[in-house]
Nucleic acid binder design. Structure first.
Length: 698
RNA sequence: GGGCGCUUAGCUCAGUUGGUUCAGAGCGUCUCGUUUACACCGAGAAGGUCAGAGGUUCGAGUCCUCUAGCGCCCACCA
């Protein structure tokens, strides 16, 4: 044994050893423990956030040592819109667009792109020592997985919970697709609010409206005021003339209008604003789409047609000003919707899309949001930390229908076929000819929302894993995808399988640098987990991520912290070296224990109890700190120092405490613990990984 | 406009049934130590009115109220 622990000599060796011996596979115990790995997006490398999977590995290794039949199932996500955006950017560098390739070729290329990324990511997960059962690996686009996703679509459709409707949706002009409400990020931006005078017909008077989007005035079909607003009492029922294009529009009254905001008079553009859309519905107003799906003014916008919407805005303002119809301009902060994936300003448009009805019962009687709500309220699903339960309720209670169609090429094509006026919904294409499949794909979260049961073979001929491991024990993921993913898994899991997909949700926080800033490549403060693992060892990186981080709280981690944990691995290594390699010639294993021995063994017993409790209470940091303190300060600094006077008599206790400490540490630092454990003269079993979890009975 | 969280040693953070051992850890700083497990080390030290105010209690970082900073999430006010 060298003086300094060299992780590079051992890490790969032991990982292969475990895998070759099938230790990652569940045993045949009747007690089960299962976690499905949150599938990373197969469009890039793993970042430090993914290394938080270590929490799952701790749980999995702990339960495996308890002797339970333990499954941790790996997989990857095709990540619909994000992967398409990433691959399109790559094409762009080659001067190509996806249209140049055609749908089929684009899909083919994107597929091989994801497979390449996927395999690299898997190597990275292995480098972290994660005890995943690779024989059960899944990808969201695997044929069997897709089949289940299509049959869920059909089931919801037949139940009346999936419908196609014309609604106001969020449109990303850059991605050329509709987005769900969740995929729209609201950002505060300072802009202008323009006050524009609309002349009243047969009168010299004006009605002045305030707007942040003057270009949409070309689509105005009314001006609205509050019915109680005395200032405008005489205006209601009159007709205003839209400047520039001279369309005549009514002045109507609606309680939606806030008399205190702006002028108290609002232009109504039912085709380009969600509120106006609803007012339009109430008052049966015409919807005139003046902005197209390409972000350019449509042919409904007279002399402005074909112009980019921002160019049109500028031009309209200039012309209004020259006509003297621009009353004033004020600075104004608005909340503007942008695309989650490309940051382009989202345009509200009316379009025909597929939706999931989330808060009405289907003919089956099932109600997605309500059932998902009561699963948590009843305690069937527990969320840790519990404050996220409140957040979950709040979101579930205010949920709108979920738009699931996307105008993308990458993903599951919607399992609906059309022939004339006929519509066919099914898992497989209809047999007879003349049908054309819907061109859209499914929201990526519609498929990942079914991950806990699709991966286990639900609905397949071979569904032994599903029967055995579903519902899964724990879903461990970041709180940032509570709504996107966890909520959808609960809804779809309950709907399809009639059971909650997991019993416990453990949410971890974001990984930040030591100054508390979000890590990002552009800031240059990002820690690449693989580079860090290469430098300091995977065990050190793992410990650094667990140490001092509680559930739901963001974790701060810097190189110093990793270095500190690397020092701990070296300490452990030297404890092993002292006990194993510096073993004296004369050892009396049967010597009577003295007070110092007893004190240490009694402390070890307490540590076992504390660590076991902490892990089962999901307080992994607590467990890690307990072990760190015991091993370094009690065992090494005090006991080992004291043992030097009676080396031969201490050997039995030294070996016992080391061996048990290694087992306690194994879930946290699997690689070094295996390396030292294998060198122990007295141990039983083939690997520490399948050795029993230390209990107090001994 | 709603909702949530944070504020404990110079820095990053623990502290889950309120009670002698809770005033802690790691890093940093200072002093000492080149003892054959480890300098990726050891021995020791300095350093905090636990954001502020009030309340509940025999007793409060730990529960309640308010205040002040900071941060996050959700939301269709032009």
């Amino acid at each position: 044994m060298d003086k300094i622990y060299n992780h590079k000599d051992v890490e790969e060796k032991w990982y292969s050893f475990w895998e070759e011996n099938g230790f990652f596979k569940p045993n045949d115990s009747t007690k089960h423990f299962s976690i499905i790995l949150p599938p990373p997006n197969a469009n890039g490398r793993l970042h430090i956030g993914h290394a938080m999977y270590v929490i799952e590995d701790i749980m999995v290794r702990y339960h495996r040592m308890l002797g339970e039949s333990t499954l941790w199932l790996p997989g990857a996500d095709h990540a619909g819109i994000l992967t398409q955006v990433v691959y399109e950017k790559q094409l762009e560098k080659e001067g190509k667009r996806r249209e140049d390739l055609g749908r089929e070729e684009f899909y083919k290329q994107t597929y091989s792109f994801t497979q390449k990324n996927k395999n690299e990511m898997y190597d990275q997960l292995k480098a972290m020592g994660f005890s995943l059962d690779w024989s059960r690996e899944k990808f969201t686009l695997d044929p069997k997985i897709s089949e289940t996703i299509y049959s869920t679509f059909k089931k919801l459709y037949d139940d009346g919970l999936i419908y196609r409707g014309t609604r106001m949706i969020n449109w990303c002009p850059r991605c050329s697709t509709v987005l769900s409400d969740l995929e729209v990020i609201h950002k505060e931006k300072e802009g202008n609010i323009w006050y524009i005078k609309y002349p009243l017909k047969n009168s010299a008077a004006f009605i002045t409206i305030a707007t942040t989007r003057p270009e949409t005035m070309l689509g105005d079909t009314a001006v609205a005021v509050n019915p109680d607003d005395k200032r405008y009492k005489d205006f209601v029922g009159k007709t205003a003339t839209l400047p520039l294009i001279a369309r005549e529009i009514p002045v109507i009254s609606d309680t939606y209008v806030d008399p205190k905001f702006g002028t108290g008079a609002v232009k109504i553009t039912p085709a380009h604003d969600p509120n106006d859309y609803e007012i339009g519905e109430r008052h049966k107003l015409e919807q005139i789409q003046v902005i197209g799906f390409d972000d350019k003014m449509t042919d409904k916008s007279a002399q402005y047609s074909g112009l980019d919407k921002y160019v049109a805005r500028k031009k309209i303002i200039e012309e209004l000003e020259s006509l003297g119809l621009l009353d004033k301009i004020e600075r104004h902060v608005t909340n503007i919707g942008t695309c989650e994936r490309c940051s382009t300003v989202v345009e509200p448009l009316i379009s025909k899309q597929w939706f999931v009805a989330v808060n009405k019962p289907g003919t089956s009687g099932k109600n997605l949001a309500q059932d998902a709500l009561s699963a948590v309220k009843s305690g069937k699903i527990k969320i840790i930390p519990s404050r996220f339960e409140k957040i979950y309720y709040n979101w579930m209670e205010n949920l709108h229908d979920w738009c699931i169609s996307r105008q993308l090429w990458w993903g599951h094509q919607i399992p609906v076929w059309y022939k004339g006026n006929e519509v066919f919904v099914g898992v497989d294409a209809p047999k007879d000819s003349g049908w054309q499949q819907d061109q859209d794909t499914l929201d990526t979260w519609f498929s990942s929302g079914q991950w806990p049961f699709t991966t286990l073979g639900y609905g397949q001929k071979d569904d032994l894993d599903f029967k055995k491991f579903y519902p899964t024990s724990v879903m461990e993921t970041g709180y940032d995808i509570l709504f996107f993913w966890v909520a959808r898994m609960i809804m779809l899991g309950l709907y399809v399988t009639n059971e909650a997909p997991f019993k416990t949700v453990y949410l971890h926080g974001l990984v930040r640098d030591e100054k508390g800033q979000k890590m990002s490549k552009s800031k240059g403060n990002a820690i690449d987990p693989l580079i860090a693992a290469d430098k300091y060892g995977a065990d050190a990186v793992r410990m650094a991520l667990v140490f001092g981080t509680g559930a739901g709280n963001d974790a701060t981690i810097g190189e110093d912290k990793i270095k500190g944990m690397r020092n701990f691995t070296n300490k452990l290594w030297n404890i092993g070296r002292y006990i194993i390699e510096m073993k004296p010639d004369k050892v009396n294993y049967g010597s009577a224990r003295n007070d110092v021995d007893e004190a240490l063994l009694s402390e070890l017993n307490q540590v076992k109890a504390k660590v076991t409790k902490a892990i089962s209470d999901y307080r992994f940091s607590q467990a890690a700190e307990e072990l760190y303190d015991f091993v370094w300060h009690s065992f090494a600094d005090k006991y080992i120092e004291a043992s030097k006077d009676r080396r031969g008599e201490s050997q039995a206790v030294l070996e016992q405490v080391l061996e048990e400490s290694l087992r306690l540490l194994h879930p946290f630092m699997p690689l070094i613990t295996e390396e030292i454990w294998q060198k122990l003269p007295r141990k039983s079993g083939k690997s520490i990984m399948i050795a029993p979890w230390p209990s107090n009975t001994g």
